[in-house]
């Protein structure tokens, strides 16, 4: 066999075997890792067209469904996003003049840690060709999703069940909302511990809230409506975060910004709302915004 034939037949074999593995790939839920294009679509959403833009971290994009809000809305939440001037300014660019900016505050989004390890900045810093390539190739990731060990074991046992469509654990909506179908939990001690440790090292206090209100009142003065809210978390996570919601509300309202009091909701990990709770919270927010 000569070199060219060897390479071509090897690549052909890779395509056949890879194709078979793609067909038999598990039909379970998607995750962020296999949808890199989703975040780029969100980042590249058109400017000056939305009536409402929601900003915040993963709690925001899992907690507010823009499809249920009045007018044209975009959930501009990103994992680990810091509520810093650069991020908020990018979000405001998406709003039409006089639109509503909904700010979902979480203690982590105000920390120095979030500002330093800013995933939003890292995404935005990628050059246009890189972003375009990733966005364009995004569907290929869904077809080349890796198998887990248990899925390999099931496949080796000839489990045709892998082919059966399963309910996705997460659904990525076009408006920027990620709905989780995971069951709710009453408490999440591990999440609470992680938050407690993180906020011990990076505390959030008056200074951080002042920075945020200073930033947001600028947009208020610029003719935008600014609504601040804090999405529900489990009681143990709330306690671990040591940020008093009543005090926070006082600070926000005291500067002329609007505060939206979220109704209670269930989380699937102590920190992020289940899809059902997210829709309930969004419904209430929609009524508040329509007032």
């Amino acid at each position: 066999m000569n070199g060219r034939a060897f390479v071509l037949s090897s690549l052909a074999a890779a395509l056949v075997i890879g194709g078979a593995l793609a067909v038999f790939r598990p039909a379970t839920g998607e995750s962020e890792d296999v949808r890199p294009g989703y975040w780029i679509e969100k980042l590249q959403a058109p400017e000056r067209v939305f009536d409402i833009v929601i900003v915040g971290d993963s709690r925001a994009y899992r907690g507010v469904d823009p499809a249920l809000l009045p007018g044209r809305a975009l959930n501009f939440g990103f994992s680990g996003a810091a509520l810093d001037p650069h991020y908020v300014h990018t979000a405001v660019q998406k709003l039409r003049r006089g639109g509503s900016l909904v700010v979902a505050v979480s203690p982590h989004s105000l920390t120095a840690r979030a500002r330093e390890a800013n995933a939003f900045d890292a995404l935005q810093a990628r050059h246009a060709a890189d972003l375009a390539l990733t966005r364009w190739a995004s569907p290929a990731y869904a077809w080349t999703r890796p198998y887990t060990m248990s899925q390999v074991a099931a496949l080796a046992r000839g489990r045709a069940a892998l082919l059966a469509p399963a309910s996705p654990a997460e659904t990525f909506h076009s408006g920027g909302f990620v709905a989780s179908a995971r069951p709710s939990v009453a408490s999440a001690p591990e999440t609470a511990r992680v938050y407690a440790e993180m906020l011990e090292a990076h505390p959030v206090g008056e200074r951080e809230i002042m920075d945020l209100t200073y930033l947001l009142t600028g947009y208020l003065a610029g003719g935008y409506r600014v609504v601040v809210l804090r999405l529900p978390v489990s009681p143990d996570v709330l306690e671990a975060e040591r940020l008093d919601s009543a005090w926070l509300r006082e600070q926000i309202v005291g500067t002329g910004l609007e505060w939206f009091e979220c109704p209670p909701g269930d989380t699937y990990d102590g920190s992020h709302l289940t899809a059902d709770s997210a829709r309930e919270v969004t419904g209430a927010l929609g009524r508040f915004l329509a007032e």
Partner: peptide
């Protein structure tokens, strides 16, 4: 070639 193809496909799916 089948083995090489298998290694490449496995490299993607595992």
């Amino acid at each position: 070639p089948a083995m090489i193809g298998g290694l490449l496909a496995t490299a993607v799916y595992l």
